[in-house]
Design a protein around this nucleic acid. Structure first.
Lengths: 214, 214
DNA sequence: CCTAATGTACGAACCAGTGAGTTAGTTCCC
DNA sequence: GGGAACTAACTCACTGGTTCGTACATTAGG
């Protein structure tokens, strides 16, 4: 009954599975689906390639498991956001900044999303908890927009998903395209100086849009 | 001397080269670098695999040639933009719309950029006409911003590259991430209805940002 | 007749996936 | 509480197909 608290078990399905997933996430994010090597993943875990097939079935299912976990991490994080106590303008600004920070600290997720889009999102199509399910952020944005319109702080009627796209596009672009953008314009988008500036800029853009005349 | 205008030559280095590049662009954009198959490219041209190596040297150099051509097409297109005759607000709006349209009609380019970012832009690093060279769009934006500030139409002092990034991020995201975004929010970002709405929205966002108080 | 351009056929490395056997850990029974 | 029986977790060695790249032969065109 009592499993040894400190002593490491030699065999631990949960730990092995988690380790495979973790290493796979890095490999897929780094190399893409076609570029990722099953042997390489296996070599970087404490187990063997045979175990990947034992637990996940194949390269593609492993990739799907990686995607599923990545998305569930994001969704969990979204659910911790709490801005209902703030005034609408401050609330939307804070939400934008939290989104910005979250993307900043999860480049692997963004790479996986890019990769999945290259594949026309065919792998997440089969996953559960995706279709139709309203994301918590959308409901959050919806509430902020309603409050802002009611109080008169916002003058433009905007769709919540559209606003989420505006925020996401800015946050994602900065991380996803930093290499080509950086090479072309000779500018490191992730330097602390620019990070701070773009974080501020995003809020200004969003608020400016919501408050514009007409 | 006179090459037969209608009668197709059997051997034509220029045509063969161009055909290989065209097919390669599609294949790389569709499958990514690692996922692309040299044999598949060869099969879809009128020539054989041997020719890819004869003209380009290898898979990687072929990919680089594809990138180089894709970027030069974009740059050429940027140079045709003419908005100096418009008032600042109309000019920046027009520029945003042209950028929007251009991305809309060049999804392959956007996919190649995504793919190249997965590879940390290591392949465009070695290419010419990239580093430092000021892009024509940036100079264009710079002029519009100057005029807008001078006339008082714009109230915010903004860096041209930053504004270009804002515009690009919105345009790129809509095309690059349409599959995952569409799957999650059950929304086809490329439907004519939404295309029109987002084209308008982008202008509103940009103008709202440039005109905001403070 | 000479060379650029092209076609054919093949090799060596790579890579996803598997068949068959082994051991750690648990459960059951006395 | 101790060992037999059982199963989940694991290792090892292998394979068949794929894929990039090339050696060598051939032909168009000037």
């Amino acid at each position: 009954m009592a499993s040894p608290a400190t002593g490491e078990r030699q065999r631990d399905a949960g730990r092995t599975r988690a380790e495979i997933l973790e290493v796979s996430t890095r490999e897929f994010a780094e190399q893409g689906f076609a570029g990722a090597r099953v042997d390489e993943i296996a070599a970087r875990t404490r187990t063997t390639k045979r175990m990947l097939y034992y637990y996940f079935g194949g390269k593609e299912q492993l990739y799907q498991a990686v995607l599923q976990q990545a998305y569930s991490v994001i969704r969990a994080s979204e659910q911790t956001i709490e801005v209902d106590h703030l005034e609408p303008t401050a609330a939307i600004r804070r939400l934008a900044e939290l989104t910005f920070d979250h993307h900043e600290s999860h480049p692997d997720f963004i790479r996986l999303v890019s990769i999945e889009n290259i594949h026309h999102a065919e792998h997440i199509a089969g996953l559960e908890d995706f279709a139709g399910q309203n994301s918590p952020v959308i409901e959050l944005i919806d509430r902020i927009l309603d409050r802002g319109l009611a109080s008169g702080e916002f003058t433009r009627k905007v769709d919540a998903v559209d606003l989420h796209m505006l925020i996401s596009s800015f946050c994602v672009f900065r991380v996803a395209n930093r290499h080509t953008f950086g090479a072309i314009f000779d500018r490191d988008l992730t330097s602390p100086r620019l990070r701070k500036r773009y974080r501020q800029m995003l809020g200004d853009v969003v608020v400016g849009y919501l408050r514009a005349e007409t």
